[in-house]
Write a protein that binds this DNA or RNA. Structure first.
Lengths: 146, 146
DNA sequence: CTAAATTTAATTGTTTACAATTTAAAGCCG
DNA sequence: CGGCTTTAAATTGTAAACAATTAAATTTAG
């Protein structure tokens, strides 16, 4: 290197490994999700709605750190596939409430094996190591999100 | 939840926090990189070339876990901004070699403060904690990349 | 040597991300 | 009440990601 600073080396950064790891892991979801007719971001929206139905676009956005510019098209595709309905709120017409359809609710049962499949890819990891790692990643989000 | 399985909860997953953390951290690069006229993926390509110039598209792709479908447009934009040149190899005309231009090389000096800026966002992290975390993320990539 | 297989980039089409702007509704304040 | 600000979602435009296919050069087998 002409400039003597190792911090510009890819391997010494935090962000690149995170970026690569998240993409590679999302790839692992592709095949099982394809059987449900979902992409990974669509799956995340469904996870949230299975947990609590009827949230607004921005409530979903807060949980996923995504804005309406990203979510609106995702939600429209979920609606086109008949997994959700988008309804303007009666109380506040600025808000759009997202509700699961019957097929959307039914999909949850088909999704239950997925976390186990993904988890099995990490079988060389000790359980404690993995939980610690999750804690660290979540801590990183907390550090950065403001 | 109608189905009793906590593994479908967002907070219990590994992938979502990784995905969120990487996006939030990439956001932090946006402003400093904008001054250099680079996006984050473009910056990654430049980091690689600053380390070793003249690599082919697929050699860069191996390091970034990206294929030509993603890289070709990124490289074309870098070329349009006069940071790199794309040349068909003489020895093997299937290959395209990527070389830094003079402006591309000069950019490295302007990029040196960036890792420190990003690192300063993580000042609540102990140095040892951070290096351990990096090791873990890299280990995750090794676990998954095949 | 030559036809088939492989490799390398590029292309095509779909789906995110995300900044910036727009539109419309709701809240606020004199 | 009536303008002013704020909020919520959608829209617009740009740039990734990535699967699948294509095109061209190289390698391999017979």
């Amino acid at each position: 290197m002409s400039i003597s600073d190792d911090s510009l080396l890819l391997k010494n950064q935090v962000c690149f490994p995170l970026y690569a790891a998240s993409r590679i892991l999302i790839q692992a979801y592709r095949e099982p999700l394809e059987e449900l007719g979902l992409t990974y971001p669509q799956y995340l929206v469904m996870l949230i709605l299975w947990e609590k139905d009827g949230l607004t676009v921005s409530q979903i956005g807060e949980k996923l750190f995504l804005d309406s510019g990203t979510l609106t098209p995702v939600l429209k595709r979920l609606e086109a596939n008949n997994f959700i309905k988008r309804n303007r709120s009666d109380k506040d017409e600025r808000k759009v409430e997202i509700e699961l359809t019957y097929p959307g609710k039914s999909l949850q049962a088909k999704a239950t094996p997925i976390p186990e499949k993904i988890h099995s890819l990490l079988n060389q990891w000790e359980e404690g190591e993995l939980s610690l790692f999750k804690i660290q990643v979540n801590k990183l989000i907390e550090t950065l999100k403001h």
